[in-house]
Design a protein around this nucleic acid. Structure first.
Lengths: 313, 313
DNA sequence: GTCAATTACGTTCTCCGTAAGGATG
DNA sequence: CATCCTTACGGAGAACGTAATTGAC
């Protein structure tokens, strides 16, 4: 029991149905007239009915042929539409990429990349989730995101990861703070400082905890969710904070100073993370490549733009 | 520029998409695993995108594969529905036949044939036009009828015709008419009779005119459309009429007598007529065959049932 | 070491084109 | 006799199956 129909035979049928002439229809289909003849016969055999009434002079549709003409037109239309649709996706004229990224990246590095991508492929919908590191991975796990840009967190083992860059930590303090005059800060310099923390769920906090293991900082007891709040607290003289460079745009205030840490390993790695097994869609693949190309430059190059003191806007 | 897709490759794709296992999907499709593998590769090439992510251990759909899965399911569904539809017509589970027949045939011989046909093929719609001969042919010409059952009329040349039977003429007169006692009537016997005619557009009239060429009948001047009217006029003693046997059921009245004509050529042929070029639909073909089988018997056999005198009902 | 997909290769078979056949007007 | 669809036939290429290869667990 084999019902096998090819698009070619449907096209052949439609050509003959229009031309009503084997020879003409055959050359429209780029084949010899004899081959065309047997192809029509095969099709009639597959359908189970004579589709054309032909003598040596005239070619006419039978009643079943007329029926099949409607059928064939619809099928060919559907098939070509479907394949046009597919090739739209493949050609990245359509499609979707979803990125989950840390808020700092979502606000800072990514927008330019997304803009570039959208200009290259205007038809593709780019979805952006700004979420903390754990949630980024959760989105990836659920399939809601194709790519995650985040810092190392829990359970990265199940994913494919690649380090994009290292985001160096800065000390942020008020202009009148004791450390404000230094060009570089060592971890040891922080002992005795009141430290304003971010919530434990943030990757920044997790890194800071690791970095400061063994350093006797004072705990201000303040633990907030948003960096803007941290900035406000520092401005109010309630303490200092340790944040990655990518978040510094939140601290560009007249009376605040940000100073790079001296040790090169006082950094937060930024990773691009993908699902291990699942291949990316062509759209997502393109995005992933662009991100790697652009962000592998930005962040290491970030130290070339030291941004030590924040000019008043 | 060749986009050629076969239903087999779509089925292969769907099988693999379900099984997620080349070997299993291959044997479901009744082919070797290697052939199956290259078939999937060909399909991916045709689509222009990788559809499956596979290593030696796992087979998964890519993002494009998921898209294509929807597409393929729809296409296969459409194609199979379309072909099921066609095979319904071919198997005469569906279809349509339209018959145009003379009123006498439509009332007398055909109903039994139509009933038999409908019992054999309940799904087929049978359409019946009862019309005079010229109109029967007009319906055929317009394509509103597939088959016509009629007597020879104008312009049969453009059609395929076949004589089914000969409908012998009878004289119908009142019981008290001078000819009522005869067993057979010769054309010459009619000279001097008042003849009640049917309208000139009827095939009966046209035949009667030919038969009586050279016979000195009186023309009653009466020309009516319906046989029932003719019967009424004869009952009223206004004349006699010459009608074919198939119409005699209209004259079964107590005081009327119908007598066969003696000459064997005093007949009206009944033809089955079809369009010349156009092949019949399968449904119409079956009907045509059944009509020929049944009606080739009925009418010639009609002389075996002489029906000379009409019993009172 | 085993399972599973890909690749290699020889065979088979389908499909195509050339050419002859046959029907029609 | 010219046109045009069908059939015949031989060759080219595609598809298939067996078997070897590669890769993952």
């Amino acid at each position: 029991m084999k019902l096998n129909i090819s698009t070619r035979s449907l096209h052949a049928f439609l050509a003959l149905q229009e031309c009503k002439h084997f020879t003409h229809a055959a050359e429209r289909c780029c084949m010899s007239q004899s081959a065309f003849s047997v192809m029509i016969q095969k099709l009639e055999q597959a359908v189970g009915a004579k589709l054309f009434e032909r003598d040596t002079r005239n070619v006419t549709l039978t009643a079943e042929g007329e029926l099949f003409a409607d059928v064939a037109r619809n099928l060919v239309g559907d098939i070509e539409a479907a394949f046009a649709d597919m090739s739209d996706y493949v050609a990245r004229r359509r499609g979707r990429v979803a990125i989950a990224a840390l808020p700092s990246l979502a606000a800072h590095g990514l927008p330019a990349v997304i803009a570039e991508y959208k200009q290259a492929y205007p038809g593709i919908t780019v979805q952006l989730f700004d979420a903390l590191s754990d949630q980024c991975l959760a989105l990836l796990r659920q399939g809601k995101a194709d790519i995650a840009l985040t810092a190392p967190g829990a359970s990265l083992g199940e994913f494919d990861t690649k380090t994009l860059c290292s985001d160096p930590f800065y000390l942020v303090c008020r202009q009148d703070h004791a450390l404000a005059g230094k060009k570089r800060i060592r971890l040891a310099d922080l002992s005795g400082c009141e430290l304003i923390h971010l919530a434990r769920s943030t990757s920044v906090r997790q890194h800071v905890e690791l970095l400061l293991r063994g350093i006797a900082v004072k705990n201000s007891g303040l633990e907030v969710e948003h960096l803007a709040t941290v900035a406000g607290l520092i401005e109010a003289g309630l303490g200092v904070s340790l944040v990655p460079e990518l978040t510094l745009f939140q601290f560009r205030k007249m009376n605040l100073v940000s100073i790079p840490m001296e040790a090169l390993d006082v950094v937060r790695p930024i990773l691009i993370v993908k699902k291990k097994e699942r291949a990316l869609s062509i759209a997502a693949q393109g995005m992933s490549e662009l991100i790697e190309k652009r962000l592998l430059k930005i962040a290491p190059a970030s130290s070339s733009r030291p941004l030590r003191r924040n000019p008043a806007r």
